[in-house]
Write a protein that binds this DNA or RNA. Structure first.
Length: 765
RNA sequence: GGUCACAUAGCUCAGUUGGUAGAGCACUGCGUUCACAUCGCAGUUGUCACAGGUUCGAGUCCUGUUGUGACCACCA
């Protein structure tokens, strides 16, 4: 039975899809490892909000290379896939989607909205899976998890309750970052500061029982009604005399004490600081030190409060409008003494892109500081290693200055906090409603007076449990946890070192008493070819699926690996993908040549006599060592260069050319063997085309054993010298006599090459 | 303000313990009869940001300067 002939041109669309179903059906490799080692990897779960971008393509390509490489090397390999419910992001996207189809999300009940989001999740999740498969991801798909699966929810509740009962989760009224558009608290990390032009207004407050004034400077005049002190520096000679006196807030009649505090910077503004503890982080700290009243004048929608503290003409107005009106009035009444243009940074929510207001609200917090010490230690002792190493500094900086983590969110999509409140402020935290009722009963609270907290948890709280919750924690003795935990390597971008990596380490150490992973490989950010960040608004986003359609998944993967230089962002140009596609064509054509020569791909090759054959075998061996080394050192860029160099410079340019004149059985056997081994070495990078060639050329599954062919290296140098001679004779400019003739003949274009090679090959023989 | 990167050919970047500067793309020329035009061969291209220092010798190590970027903090 003759094998089908390879098509004249390499066209990935002809066959890549044939492998999709095989990838989907791929079972867990239950055979025990040949080496008794496992390699496990967590896929950072993508949000269910939409399509994959090139950044995903990069991270999955790298992960898949590692997984395929280790699977091939005989490790017991596991790659945990899944998706993240991405609370705020998903709720936002679905709300927008509902609005565009004429449904007001706020008119839906909690349950109705949640149902709509589940529908969205179903559609989107399938889409993501399809794209991952198209990229060639060989994850352990049967074990895919979603952060809102029943089992995962149980893990999250268990974690919350345990942390609460240990005292590491607490509820408190604090100043938190409030998103007035989404109407929820967010964490420090979810804020982006943007530099903007602004105005510093100098406003004078009358000093009580005096005709004097004190002038403060502020960028936020509308918060003046929440002032509960004015602070000056204790050493500021200008203001020593007014410390202890009171100042009158315009239009409110309220007076506040003038105090002294080291925090005040004498150089900034007027040296007098209005203190608004309920609307500014630093003022909040001053307020705590001086036991000041906390007066809120901004509500959760970003309006001025309707409250006695706010004067009539501003109550209930949007902040911007209120500010404008107030400034007009202050100017009119002579309180506004100066306006100064300044550049300052304004906090924006990274999802809603709206200005974040610090507001005083009741929230749940994780005492991250208490969990940080261990997490710092495991990186210090290199139990967990970062690649590139520099990222551990970033990690340490953040860990050493860690703040309590606000984990409650006032949205509906997420893990609802398992807390119930009694009529007199009692807090009951239990895993289930029944247990909560029992606990209430014990406290003498009637169960119908119990109200469950309506907040949900920060998405990153559940993601932090990903390493062990996916493996079955907290069930008794889960198989996966026993077998694959701690995981071997985590592949991730630097943008989520704090959001995710740090928190996984803390949570894993607390709940499993083990590290979640031993190595962290931090990859680059994919930018456009001009070095700009890709974003929808800039319109420079490249859809990986288009590239796969045009050039094939292998070409995209090869390109991404090729460009993965550690510590350097990737400037992505679609031309690179074309170049990779062209290189894969070269492999394809080499295969066609071997096929045309009737090369058989035997399970074993006999004795090898020809030096040329020893030479190529030695080169192959070196090539495989290089690939191995470079993958283990995360130098995917080097590895792809190894692949190109071996195939093009060594196998095609020299060996195949020589083979055209020496196609004896031994050489053909060696050629088949070398090519098959080359395909194996390249398959983690370009799995589709290598699988297709293995399939069509009928290459045996099992690698051929060539250990008996030692020593190969002895012949390597000898042949290398001939190769070198050819290059020299071709490039040498000044030659005389015999050499000159040789040079001239070699200069006669490529069609002279084979003849020359033939001669060389004879000598080598 | 703090920390960390980066600066090498027209472009994108390699250059792993210091030892004659590399690749791909682009460009120029040549070549389709036998794997490959999604290709091959040949050729051109450099004050290794700047200034010092260590060394027999520095793209590589040290110090400083300039420029670019990222992150963190602050911002009356």
């Amino acid at each position: 039975m003759s094998a089908p002939l390879l098509n004249k041109t390499y066209n990935p669309n002809d066959f890549e899809k044939n492998f999709y179903s095989r990838a989907l059906c791929q079972p867990l490799t239950l055979a025990t490892s040949e080496k008794g080692c496992y390699f496990s990897l967590l896929m950072p779960p993508p949000n269910v909000t939409g399509n994959l971008h090139l950044g995903h393509a990069l991270t999955y390509t790298i992960q898949d290379i590692l997984v395929r490489y280790h699977r091939q090397a005989g490790f017991d390999t596991f790659w945990q896939p899944g998706t993240d419910h991405a609370g705020i992001a998903t709720q936002m996207v679905v709300s927008r989607d509902l609005e565009s189809s004429g449904i007001d999300p706020s008119s839906l009940s909690r349950d109705e909205l949640i149902e709509k989001i589940w529908e969205w999740k179903k559609r989107s999740g399938d889409n993501i899976l399809h794209q991952q498969i198209a990229l060639g991801c060989s994850a352990s798909w049967d074990f895919s998890r979603f952060t809102m699966d029943d089992d995962f929810c149980k893990s999250v509740i268990e974690a919350f309750v345990t942390l609460y009962k240990t005292g590491l989760i607490f509820r408190d009224k604090r100043l938190v970052n409030w998103d007035t558009k989404l109407k929820t608290a967010i964490s420090d990390l979810e804020i982006q500061n943007r530099e903007e032009k602004g105005t510093l207004w100098h406003i004078k407050y009358k000093i009580a029982d005096s005709s004097d004034f004190v002038t403060i400077a502020t960028t936020r005049p509308e918060t003046m009604f929440g002032d509960t002190a004015i602070a000056v520096h204790p050493n500021d000679e200008r203001y020593g005399s007014i410390i202890g006196k009171e100042a009158v807030i315009p239009y409110s009649g309220r007076t506040v004490l003038i105090i002294s505090d080291d925090y005040v910077d004498m150089e900034k503004g007027t040296g007098c600081l209005k203190v608004t503890p309920a609307h500014d982080i630093n003022d909040f700290a001053i307020g705590k030190r001086h036991d000041l009243e906390m007066v809120s004048v901004i509500d959760e929608d970003g309006h001025m409060c309707v409250s006695d503290y706010v004067p009539d003409f501003l109550r209930g107005l949007y902040l911007k409008k209120a500010r404008k009106l107030l400034l007009e009035k202050l100017a009119e009444d002579g309180f506004l003494v100066k306006e100064e243009e300044i550049i300052h940074s304004i906090p924006y929510g990274d999802r809603s892109e709206t200005i974040i207001e610090p507001l005083l609200t009741d929230q749940w917090f994780v005492d991250a500081k208490a969990m940080a010490d261990e997490a710092i230690k495991v990186v210090e002792t290199e139990e967990i290693k970062f690649f590139p190493e520099k990222w551990k500094n970033t990690y340490f900086d953040w860990m050493h200055n860690i703040e309590p983590w606000c984990i409650s969110r006032q949205i509906v999509w997420g893990h609802r906090i398992p807390a119930w409140y009694g009529p007199n402020g009692e807090i009951i935290v239990e895993k289930t409603e029944e247990e909560a009722y029992r606990a209430a009963d014990a406290l003498g609270i009637q169960k119908d007076l119990l109200r469950r907290d309506t907040d949900v948890l920060d998405t990153w709280f559940s993601s932090a449990l990903w390493p062990f919750a996916t493996f079955g924690w907290p069930k008794e003795n889960p198989e996966l946890l026993k077998r694959y935990y701690p995981t071997t390597t985590l592949v991730s971008g630097f943008d989520i070192i704090f959001f995710w990596i740090a928190r996984m380490i803390m949570m894993s150490l607390f709940f499993t008493k083990q590290i979640p992973f031993s190595n962290i490989y931090i990859h680059a950010l994919v930018r456009d070819k001009n070095g700009q960040k890709m974003s929808k608004s800039k319109g420079n986003v490249i859809d990986p699926m288009n590239l796969i359609g045009e050039f094939g998944a292998d070409a995209l993967r090869f390109t991404l690996a090729f460009l993965s230089v550690p510590g350097r962002d990737i400037k992505f140009d679609r031309d690179h993908v074309k170049i990779s596609r062209n290189f894969i064509t070269k492999i394809w054509n080499a295969a066609r040549f071997l096929q045309s020569k009737g090369v058989a791909f035997c399970e074993s090759i006999g004795n090898v006599d020809a030096k040329l054959n020893h030479w190529i075998l030695a080169k192959l061996k070196k090539h495989k060592t290089n690939i191995c080394k470079n993958i283990n050192e995360y130098r995917f860029d080097y590895a792809t260069k190894n692949i190109q160099c071996f195939l093009r410079d060594i196998f095609c340019d020299f060996f195949i050319e020589a083979m055209k004149f020496h196609d004896d059985e031994e050489t053909k056997n060696v050629a088949g063997f070398v090519f098959a081994e080359f395909l194996r070495s390249a398959s983690p990078f370009i799995p589709f085309v290598t699988s297709q060639l293995v399939h069509i050329l009928n290459i045996p599954e099992k690698p051929t054993d060539i250990e008996h062919l030692e020593p190969l290296e002895n012949f390597e140098r000898e042949v290398d010298e001939f190769v070198e001679l050819i290059h020299e004779t071709r490039s040498e400019k000044q030659l005389s006599g015999e050499n000159s003739e040789k040079y001239d003949s070699l200069k006669r274009r490529v069609r002279d090459w084979p003849g020359e090679l033939s001669r060389i090959a004879q000598i080598v023989r």
